[in-house]
């Protein structure tokens, strides 16, 4: 059954162009099975154009897997992913970009990393150089332009990964826990880049398990638990009044152990 929470408008932001009728991206009852184990069950969500959607949940809930399925890096075992109402194809995939939890940077300079990404999109010459310089400036990385990308700090590497993705002018940006293992200053810098992109109309789908980040960035929220959508809807609503026990446990920083399990002591055979 479709999670209609995403059809509830949270109010258009300044400078945002929204199309409330047609979701930009839809997961229609998608499931994913690997080695006989079903890892994702009947996920049915729609991502509104220009929105900031957070996919949250505990470790192993299937957040990163869902992101890969939405981006077309993996094919669902059941259901389908639609881009503007049509099947997700290579052209649609090129309108998207993804930033991984551990930034994947080429063994080249910062500038060359940017150059590669833009070359793949067919940009050449002065136009490409100008775009690279302006993108690096927007992330405060201009002074590192000639440095090997892999000697940058973790925060700088992730900022580079984000601006590299944004330089390709995606309509939708996927971010898979982009601030995991980063210090607060680096986290703030990444969130600033995400907010700027969102203000320019880029649709954001971000995986996180950081409650604070969910509060700061979330407009829409999908809560995953054991491969199921436990709850979805406007982020503020779920964060203030979660309806499901897994979401409540996550918000309160507790481990959700199951429907009839309050603590580790409740497990059969537990000696705690």
């Amino acid at each position: 059954m479709r999670d209609f929470a995403f059809d509830m408008a949270t109010g258009p932001s300044v400078g945002r162009q929204r199309d409330e009728q047609q979701p930009l991206l839809e997961a229609c009852n998608i499931g994913f099975t690997a080695r006989g184990e079903q890892l994702l069950h009947n996920v049915d969500i729609a991502i509104r154009q220009g929105s900031r959607t957070l996919i949250v949940g505990p470790n192993g809930a299937g957040k990163s897997l869902l992101l890969r399925l939405l981006h077309g890096l993996l094919q669902p075992s059941d259901g389908k992913v639609l881009w503007q109402g049509n099947a997700l194809n290579a052209k649609a995939q090129r309108a998207q970009a993804m930033v991984f939890q551990r930034p994947v940077l080429l063994r080249r300079s910062v500038f060359a990393n940017m150059k590669f990404a833009l070359s793949v999109r067919g940009l050449r010459g002065q136009k490409r150089s100008d775009k690279i310089l302006s993108a690096l400036a927007s992330a405060g990385l201009s002074h590192l332009s000639n440095r090997p990308a892999r000697v940058l700090s973790g925060g700088e590497q992730q900022r580079l990964a984000v601006v590299r993705a944004l330089a390709c002018d995606p309509e939708l940006l996927f971010l898979d826990e982009p601030t995991a293992n980063l210090d607060p200053a680096s986290t703030a810098a990444i969130e600033e880049l995400v907010r700027d992109a969102s203000a320019r109309g880029v649709t954001i789908v971000l995986v996180t398990h950081d409650v604070g980040q969910a509060r700061r960035l979330g407009e829409d929220l999908v809560f995953l638990q054991d491969g199921h959508v436990a709850e979805s809807g406007p982020a503020q609503k779920i964060l203030t009044e979660p309806q499901s026990e897994p979401a409540r446990a996550w918000r309160e920083g507790r481990i959700y152990l199951g429907p009839n399990t309050q603590s580790l002591c409740d497990f059969p055979g537990s000696k705690l």
Binding site: L73, Q93, M98, F100, V104, V120
Partner: peptide, 12 residues
């Protein structure tokens, strides 16, 4: 190491 990033970028 690069496969997912290349697939995401649409590298031929």
């Amino acid at each position: 190491e690069y496969a997912e990033q290349f697939a995401s970028m649409g590298v031929g």
